[in-house]
């Protein structure tokens, strides 16, 4: 059993072994058959995907045919102060809200996974914000909770604190959005819970017999065996956080205000494309974001070799 624990603490990249050619062909065929729907689906994805790449090098106002302008859009991006502001907002939001919400989600999932009485109820309740998140009604509610005369400030008023306009003050608006994001920790939590339940109980039983402490169990069983799921949540949160749109859009009525403090990259891209009809510029922005996200994802995949453990 200690040997098993030993093994689990060491991360191991999968190393495909070279096999003889005929068997490889048959194996290849099985893989392609499983991916068949995906290949067909890629046609739907790839056509618009590369269409937007072409548009990134054009002047395209949606109504007239696109006109090739080379790298002009990218040059313009270098000198665009709003683009810089939107990057600042997006990076700040990502680097705070992703670790924060993942930490909360993992913590709560661990507590719930202890096998607590009423688990089903807690899980459903904690997941509620994620269920409701997309509803128009909830957006309207935020205004009345975080408004200058909203419920939060009423509560603070009982303690003699005069609260700011949580969404209307540029110093607080982004923090409010980060808070709201952490509030919807239910989605990663559900995935963590599912992952935790995949860990065979016998590992814990065996290590308990060996006299391992809770912390040791967490370090040498939970963390390595959950690492593929942690990795998934991290990558997924990073990608979606860099693309944050709805939060900024609904809280600022599409403006990215107050004073551009919630002007997310994707929101600015949308304004350029659909409000100002600069779709060529918006496409260039989109591909720049793709490069940024891909770079972060690649770094994570490289780093994953050292901490993500896959069963052999």
């Amino acid at each position: 059993m200690t040997a098993l624990l030993e093994r689990t603490t060491r991360a191991r990249p999968a190393a495909p072994a070279r096999k003889p050619a005929p068997r490889k062909r048959r194996r290849d065929r099985a893989g392609y058959v499983f991916l068949l729907p995906w290949f067909v689906g890629m046609l739907f994805t790839i056509v618009p995907f590369f269409a937007s790449l072409y548009l990134a090098f054009t002047d395209y106002n949606l109504l007239n045919a696109p006109r090739w302008i080379g790298f002009a859009n990218f040059r313009e991006m270098l000198a665009d102060p709003l683009l810089r502001q939107s990057m600042k907002v997006t990076f700040l939001y990502t680097f705070i809200s992703v670790p924060a919400s993942l930490a909360v989600a993992l913590l709560v999932a661990m507590v719930l996974n202890k096998g607590i009485r009423g688990l089903a109820v807690y899980r459903a309740v904690f997941y509620l914000p994620s269920l409701l998140g997309g509803s128009v009604a909830i957006v309207i509610l935020w205004r009345h909770i975080f408004g200058a005369n909203g419920i939060v400030n009423d509560l603070l008023g009982w303690f003699g604190i005069h609260g700011p306009g949580w969404t209307s003050d540029p110093d607080f608006s982004l923090s409010t959005l980060i808070l709201l994001h952490v509030w919807t920790f239910g989605s990663p939590m559900v995935i963590f819970l599912a992952g935790l339940r995949q860990i065979p109980v016998m590992y814990y039983e065996a290590s308990a017999i060996d006299g391992a402490s809770k912390w040791q169990q967490f370090r040498s069983i939970t963390l390595p065996l959950l690492s593929p799921i942690i990795f998934f949540n991290l990558i997924q949160s990073l990608i979606s956080s860099f693309q944050t749109f709805t939060q900024g859009f609904v809280m600022s009525g599409g403006t990215g205000g107050p004073a551009d403090s919630t002007l997310f990259y994707n929101l600015y891209l949308y304004q350029q494309g659909f409000s100002q009809f600069h779709m060529g510029y918006a496409s260039a922005m989109a591909w720049m974001l793709l490069v940024i996200i891909a770079a972060f994802t690649a770094i994570n995949f490289l780093a994953a070799k050292y901490w993500v453990f896959y069963e052999q």
């Binding site: 056509v47 618009p48 990608i239 793709l290």
Partner: peptide, 27 residues
């Protein structure tokens, strides 16, 4: 499963997640 081009396809799949959807709408 192991097959030729697996890593490339996987990267391509992740890549499609990374492009903001707004620029795909019109195409």
């Amino acid at each position: 499963l192991d097959f030729g081009g697996r890593k490339l396809f996987f990267a391509l799949m992740l890549g499609t997640m990374m492009l903001p959807g707004h620029v795909l709408l019109v195409p």
